[in-house]
Design a protein around this nucleic acid. Sequence first.
DNA 1: CGCGCGATTGAAGCGACTCAACGGCAGTGG
DNA 2: CCACTGCCGTTGAGTCGCTTCAATCGCGCG
Lengths: 273, 273
Amino acid sequence: MNSSIAMPGHQTQGNVMYLTALVGTEATRSTVSDVLRLMGAGDADVQYAASVPVSMRRVRAGETLFHEGAHAESIYFVRSGTFKIFRTAADGYEQVLGFVGRTEVLGFDAVSTNDHPTEAVALEDCSVYVLPMRDLFGLAERCSAFGRVVHLAVSDALARQCELADVIAAVAAEVRLARFLLHLSHRMAACGQSPRRLLLRMTRRDIASYLGVAHETVSRSFTTLAGWRLIDVDNREVTIVDMKGLHALSLGTRRQIDEASRRCMAHPAVVLA
Amino acid sequence: MNSSIAMPGHQTQGNVMYLTALVGTEATRSTVSDVLRLMGAGDADVQYAASVPVSMRRVRAGETLFHEGAHAESIYFVRSGTFKIFRTAADGYEQVLGFVGRTEVLGFDAVSTNDHPTEAVALEDCSVYVLPMRDLFGLAERCSAFGRVVHLAVSDALARQCELADVIAAVAAEVRLARFLLHLSHRMAACGQSPRRLLLRMTRRDIASYLGVAHETVSRSFTTLAGWRLIDVDNREVTIVDMKGLHALSLGTRRQIDEASRRCMAHPAVVLA
DNA sequence: CGCGCGATTGAAGCGACTCAACGGCAGTGG
DNA sequence: CCACTGCCGTTGAGTCGCTTCAATCGCGCG
């Protein structure tokens, strides 16, 4: 029952309150071994890990896990759901840094400064394991499997940062969107889900901020890609129709898409059909 | 003799070979305590740390520390110099992800995949402590101070990634450049150096890739900022003349610089003087 | 001295930003 | 119940800044 009631944007009002009472925001009791299982660690030290309690917290859609600049008390392992990570500029502009999901670590960038440099907001109902920062070193020392998991998760977060650069590197807005969709597709595949059916948890504005373009441009790029028969778009539901074509489009960094667009746009009748 | 004769850029030809023989790529003997001192750790566990040898490697300007896609054998702590981190797209476009200097960690993003997702090239003569990956876990377990240092350094690297997003978030090229220069200035200050005198180690093209604009635009932005009397530019030597003005300019994310530019351009005579 | 490369500057085209309007949907309150 | 209010998403039109192509200059090096 992970992300059953997706509720991406902002809503989740009405009949949710009783759910709160039911599952509770009060920390469900779990142990480090649950964290290790989530992160796909081996079965080493499970006996010890099973003896160390860890709290599990549910975050409903639209809620903030931690604010930018807030004192950091814990790091988090995402058990289910999707978070949006962003920074707010002096003029109020929200720059989205990324979207993180299951098995990813959150808040580790605050270890060095003790303050969160970013804000994390749940885009759907989420659940995270909460690990107090003061327990980090000790636990990593006592439980080598846990230390390993932290290293791997953080390294993964570090490597994932280049996805943003990858997207930004392309000049054409359609190429940026194509790369973004392919990243999502790869994540879906990594989770064993269909890499062709994407259910976007974020708004067009969030995507626009992440891609570094205006949100109107994102809208236009969606319709353009759909017009090229590379994807099907129904609001937040995106289906990749032509995976190879999408990948081919994503390769061009500078503006030589003319050939590709010419090839695709060579079927205007089909596009209009 | 890993990648001694890298030849990525262009320079480092002629009289460099004998230097190789002189200072040697052969690892200078150091210990973990040297690493701890570099990273500003406390004096805990120094006795043990001093007993664990660590190799120190010199990398000359233009040489590659590790290639993109290469099997990762070690992580590195930068002792001196500056590295350029980048990825190469399918069409040969180099996307620069960042520039790392003293006390920063390099290559940790390969821990999870065992392959380097990025390439690191020395922009000047550098020296790094080399820590084999197979020793990472064990050393962190046995020497808690070292484990702490790794956590802090990696967290710092994670937090530093938002500098790229910060730069990219601005739409105007001059604002991106201004933010970039301010980041460099802050690093200079953190190292106890003058925050106003910057000696750029990278080419305009590298900056352009990092900022996500054409290199001609970087050139133009430099002259524009100089024309506004915010900086002085002499090729790679940049002096921040008006720190407050530069900061004020860097605040505008969207394109409302008109007021600021008008205010600055209100003194055309002064500009031309 | 020629070659390659970095850096600057110019000119022209185009694509993204901006402003604006519209339809759709959900939650709200009379 | 239904207008009312936001917000999301889409589409249109116009402006402007960046990209692109091009030429030039300076510099290190063979």
